[in-house]
Write a protein that binds this DNA or RNA. Structure first.
Length: 711
RNA sequence: GCCCGCGUAGCUCAACGGAUAGAGCGUCUGUCUUCGGAACAGAAGGUUGGGGGUUCGAUUCCCUCCGCGGGUACCA
């Protein structure tokens, strides 16, 4: 079979790293690709395929193609070998494996790493000639950040670093939720119940506001929470029907006049396993005595369950939940008034009430201090801080313009864009998006439309990326399409980078109920755990350094956990597992780095020494562990590019883990400083260790993870 | 209903359309007169949810079914 039968026009000459270790080289699949065509043609010419079913024909081709590709690969290998340009050329399994000269290749690689040093793996700055704005870490004021927000911060920081390293001109920005329903709730609760108070000892004002926000939610949702509890009880507790009899009898005998109709209603719902709807009660006050008396039954059930020693804690849980709700049973009758008051507070904002504005500004600053501290700790820096409050008016103006231009219209009393209709789509795709509330107050969409326009108009960017929870993907599709109707016709200009949310082993988390682990708590727990380990492993280190190292390890562990999972996978955040310092996690990688540092320190050689000695350093006679390590170092620049273009830091978390693993393997297989080691080998290995250290550090750095020199 | 995502080892997750589907955890067995044991080596563990299709070749691309999660006009 002659090589000229191959049509180079249709078959790319692909080179890929060899899938096995022990050889410096690349592989090409060209023979396999070409063999398919050739065999097909041959069989056609022979007429061997005639009368065969498609499946049978395929089977025949398949049988022949293996041998044919090997034959072709061998022929091609002979040609390539004859050129004398490669250390080895082999045909294996129909692949052409090209081997390089280990000494020269290694020398070239190591000197590249040594010379570029902190920028090894990076493309030339701004070489992509593309300005990208990355919006991430959209935290809220007046509300505590929880672990779910961590994923966003970690992703945003890593993407920014990686994009910059890959040659993009990157502008990281954030967009702070400093106004909106949550702020109003918090401030209503603050001014009604906590005005003039100071936070308790050891709690920052920002954190205190977060607690007040949670309290506001509990107050405003109290009726709903009680009714939800009752409805769950009706469904889950099958003996409730009998138990409720006593409760209702007590209610009848009570001196308080209660509405018989309501009691009948409640009884009906319980016995028929129906759903209680608060509005169907004629006298809402009946709930308070009813709920109180219900406690007798639940307490009895809990005690009974305990005595029967069944492993059934449901009754106990229910009683505990009841106790919690009952503690504030007097809230029940106040809820409607609170809801009105909260709405009135919203009007204060809308009417630009000066006192309220003052309060808003003051409390906003408290939260901002908190946010700045978080950003600093997690290495997030921003070129621009956008806020929701600053785009409200621009948003309203843009809505007017959309209405004037006929893109938006009034439907059911509020401005909306009927996107599918405007785009002429038959099938329901982007639906209809409301862009302002009927009372004239702004929605997220109002503000995001104005902000998106502002980004392009004021910052001369080519692309705008939103790093936001994947649940917002329809929302951002809608925003993008409206912008398109408005005049931004570059499809790729706006990109929503979604990521799945973070849940607890016990279920979805919500900051409203305050049942999500707070970001600060998780961080503190991680740091304290890290400190314990550092003090155990490295007791001679100065306390100050132990603390610094513990922070680096704890933050690194959190970041790695958040990044080492593809964006479309839900992270089940198990604090115990995240606190584990073993295996596929940041400390393992940091440890490899610290080991390399220690080794070089003991050897007493500096990077400059290694670099200066390179021309006389021989890398001949490498053992497999060395080659494997070098191959991993060599693909770093390629991995950076890939992570950037695919927007997937995951590629780099995998990369640094693999690099650390190969280094540890090398460490065990290839002694450097031990007695009896040939000085030439020692010199080569020191160069290798240095290159590894640099690459590990650079890789971690792109992920936003610090690589301590000792730990 | 419609749209999007996910389904790979007991568990948590990898795998530019390429060679024998890989790691970590867990389980079992080993390696130390240690260049830092937060390490290393080995074993066991798989019909890649089911079924079709495209391809010389499919975990990867297409279709379909099943299961789970999310979204679906004045919530953020």
């Amino acid at each position: 079979m002659a090589s000229q039968q191959i049509d180079p026009g249709t078959k790319p000459i692909d080179l890929r790293p060899l899938p096995f270790e022990g050889t410096w080289g690349s592989a090409s699949t060209i023979a396999r690709m070409a063999a398919g065509d050739i065999v097909q043609k041959q069989l056609d010419a022979e007429g061997a395929l005639e009368g065969l079913s498609k499946k049978e024909a395929k089977k025949l081709v398949n049988e022949r193609v293996g041998a044919a590709s090997q034959e072709l690969a061998a022929t091609l290998a002979d040609h390539i070998r004859a050129s004398g340009r490669f250390a080895s050329v082999d045909a294996v399994n129909g692949y052409i494996n090209i081997g390089y000269d280990a000494d020269a290749t290694t020398n070239r690689l190591v000197s590249e790493v040594m010379q570029q040093h902190d920028t090894y793996g990076h493309a030339a700055p701004d070489s992509r000639n593309t300005r990208v704005m990355i919006e991430h870490s959209q935290l809220n004021t007046h509300k505590a950040a929880h672990v779910g927000h961590l994923r966003n911060i970690c992703l945003g920081v890593a993407l920014t670093n990686i994009s910059t390293a890959a040659g993009f001109t990157t502008m990281p920005v954030t967009y702070i939720g400093d106004i909106g329903r949550h702020v109003i709730k918090c401030l209503w609760c603050y001014s009604t119940f906590h005005a003039g108070e100071e936070p308790r000892e050891g709690i920052s004002r920002g954190r205190w506001l977060g607690e007040i926000y949670v309290e506001a939610g509990m107050r405003l949702n109290y009726r709903k929470d009680v009714v939800d509890f009752l409805n769950r009880l009706i469904k889950e507790d099958t003996s409730l029907g009998e138990g409720i009899d006593r409760v209702l009898k007590n209610l009848w005998n009570n001196d308080d006049p209660v509405d018989g109709e309501d009691i009948a209603y409640l009884l009906g719902k319980v016995t028929n396993v129906g759903e209680i709807v608060p509005d169907e009660l004629t006298d809402a006050d009946v709930m308070m005595p009813f709920f109180t008396l219900l406690g007798d039954y639940l307490r009895g059930a809990a005690i009974e369950a305990e005595q029967s020693e069944e492993e059934n804690s449901a009754a106990a849980d229910r009683y505990a939940e009841w106790t919690q709700l009952h503690d504030t049973i007097d809230w029940w009758k106040q809820v409607p008034a609170w809801i009105d008051a909260e709405k009135a507070t919203f009007q204060l904002w809308e009417n630009h009430d000066p006192d309220f504005y003052q309060l808003w500004e003051t409390t906003r600053d408290w939260s901002m201090d908190e946010l700045k501290a978080i950003f600093e700790e997690f290495g997030a820096t921003f070129d621009v801080w956008f806020t929701e409050s600053e785009v409200e008016d621009e948003g309203r103006a843009m809505v007017r313009e959309l209405l004037d231009r006929g893109i938006a219209e009034i439907s059911d009393g509020l401005p909306v864009v009927k996107i599918d209709e405007k785009l002429g789509l038959e099938q329901e795709t982007y639906r209809t998006m409301p862009i302002l509330r009927s009372d004239g107050s702004t929605l997220y969409s109002t503000k995001d439309l104005a902000l998106a326009r502002k980004k392009f108009e004021n910052y001369d960017i080519d692309q705008s990326i939103w790093v936001v929870d994947v649940r917002q993907s329809l929302y951002f599709d809608q925003i993008t399409r409206i912008l398109e109707l408005y005049g931004f016709d570059d499809h790729a200009a706006n990109l929503h980078l979604g990521y799945e949310f973070v849940t607890l082993p016990s279920g979805i988390m919500s900051s409203r109920k305050g049942n999500a682990p707070l970001l600060e708590d998780v961080r503190d727990a991680m740091i304290s755990r890290a400190l314990d380990v550092v003090q155990e492993k490295n007791p001679t280190l100065a306390l100050e350094e132990q603390e610094q190292v513990s922070r680096d390890i704890a933050i690194g562990a959190i970041k790695y956990a958040m990044l080492a999972r593809d964006g479309n996978k839900v992270i089940v955040f198990d604090p115990d597992e995240a606190l584990s310092f073993e295996g596929h996690a940041a400390p393992y990688i940091q440890y490899a780095h610290a080991r390399a540092c220690r080794l070089l320190e003991r050897a007493g050689v500096s990077d400059a020494d290694v670099l200066a000695a390179l021309p006389e350093t021989s890398f001949a006679g490498q053992i497999p562990a060395e080659l494997s390590l070098l191959q991993q170092i060599s693909i770093f620049p390629e991995m950076v590019q890939r992570a950037a273009t695919e927007h997937r830091p995951l590629h780099l978390t995998n990369y640094v883990f693999e690099l650390a693993k190969r280094f540890n393997d090398f460490y065990h297989e290839a002694p450097v400083l031990q007695e009896g080691i040939d000085p030439a080998v020692r010199q080569a290995r020191l160069a290798l260790v240095t290159a590894t250290r640099i690459t590990l550090r650079n890789g971690l750095s792109l992920l936003g993870i610090v690589a301590p020199e000792q730990m």
